[in-house]
Amino acid sequence: MNTLAAAWAWLTSAAHWSGPGGVWQRLGEHLYLTVVCLALSCAIALPVALVLGHLGRGGALAINISNAGRAVPTFAVLVLLLLTPIGGYGDWPTIIALVLFAVPPLLTNAYVGMRGVDPEVVRAARGMGMTGSQLLRRVEAPLALPLILTGVRIAAVQLVATATLAALIGGGGLGRIITAGFNLADTPQVVAGAVLVAVFALLVEAVFEAVQKFGPRWARGGAG
């Protein structure tokens, strides 16, 4: 039996999906880690990008700083965090490393989206007497939403792929299937784990694409 056939046999075995350490449990852990990190990344990056994009100042510096962080491998950040007092607090080293990894695409896309709003529309809104906060909330942010959602989609897919690193420090997620396969010298299990991560990432990509294409008007960049 070749490796691909053996990996398929592993994936189609009910014994590997249920119970402690089964695929469903690892998938739930992976989803939880992805959602938490994405939420924290959005809470950090999007307000900064929206405000800087509205003001038109400081955005280039913020983007360059965040992109410089991408030059440092996430695994290296994770190892450094393990050597600090944070390393003893469960999933927090992984969460912090993943959040730092997800911030750049969120910040960049949101800022570019804000700066790409038609200046004529902005001037018209100001001429109608809108305040700065009203302009941001009612005009600029809705028009920038397609690019903002693109950044969220990119960050989400990257997080699904990179969250496998949690397994290297004893965390949960689909990465545990891969590391267990390495420990057992079980190549089909390694391949099966990699396929699960790839399929999960593709599903996340498909969900965001569907929201942007078929979702409510606000998710497609409408102002109302």
Rank of each mutant, 00 (worst) to 15 (best):
A201S: 13
A206M: 11
A6W: 03
G193K: 09
G181F: 13
A110D: 04
A110F: 03
L4G: 03
H16W: 10
Y111S: 01
F101Y: 14
L159P: 01
G175Q: 06
I178M: 11
V117W: 08
N183V: 08
T34L: 15
A185W: 12
G193S: 06
L83P: 00
I178S: 00
V152W: 02
P93H: 07
V112P: 00
G127A: 15
W218I: 15
G21N: 08
T94Q: 09
Y111K: 02
V160W: 01
V122H: 05
G88S: 12
L38K: 07
L168P: 00
E205K: 09
Y111W: 15
Q25C: 07
Q158M: 04
G59H: 00
S133L: 14
S133G: 03
G171W: 14
T150F: 04
A125V: 02
L11A: 03
L202M: 13
L147G: 04
V77S: 10
L82W: 00
D186N: 15
E205H: 13
L149T: 01
I95A: 09
V48I: 15
L40W: 07
G222E: 02
K213S: 12
Q212K: 11
M128Y: 10
G22N: 09
H16D: 10
A45Q: 12
S13T: 08
P104Y: 03
T162Q: 14
T150Y: 04
V157H: 01
L159C: 02
N64Y: 08
G58N: 06
V122Q: 11
Q134L: 11
A45N: 12
D186G: 03
R70L: 15
A201E: 05
D91I: 11
A45P: 09
A141Q: 13
L80K: 06
E120L: 14
G88A: 11
L149E: 00
G58F: 03
A156V: 05
W8S: 08
L83H: 10
I63W: 10
R217L: 10
P47W: 05
Q212I: 05
A144I: 00
A161G: 13
I178N: 02
W24L: 15
A6G: 14
L52H: 01
G193P: 06
A219K: 07
A194D: 01
L4C: 00
Q212F: 06
P104T: 05
A43D: 11
A167H: 01
D118N: 13
A156H: 09
H30N: 10
W10A: 06
L100D: 00
L196H: 05
P216M: 08
A194F: 00
A71C: 12
V72C: 06
A15E: 15
L106V: 01
T179Y: 05
L184C: 02
L203I: 11
Y32W: 15
I177K: 04
I148F: 09
A166H: 08
V122R: 12
L203C: 14
R123H: 12
F75S: 07
L82F: 06
V99Q: 05
A192W: 01
H30L: 14
I169G: 05
L81H: 07
P104D: 02
Y111T: 06
P93Y: 10
A167V: 01
L50P: 00
G53C: 08
H30Y: 12
G113M: 13
V72M: 14
F101P: 00
G221D: 01
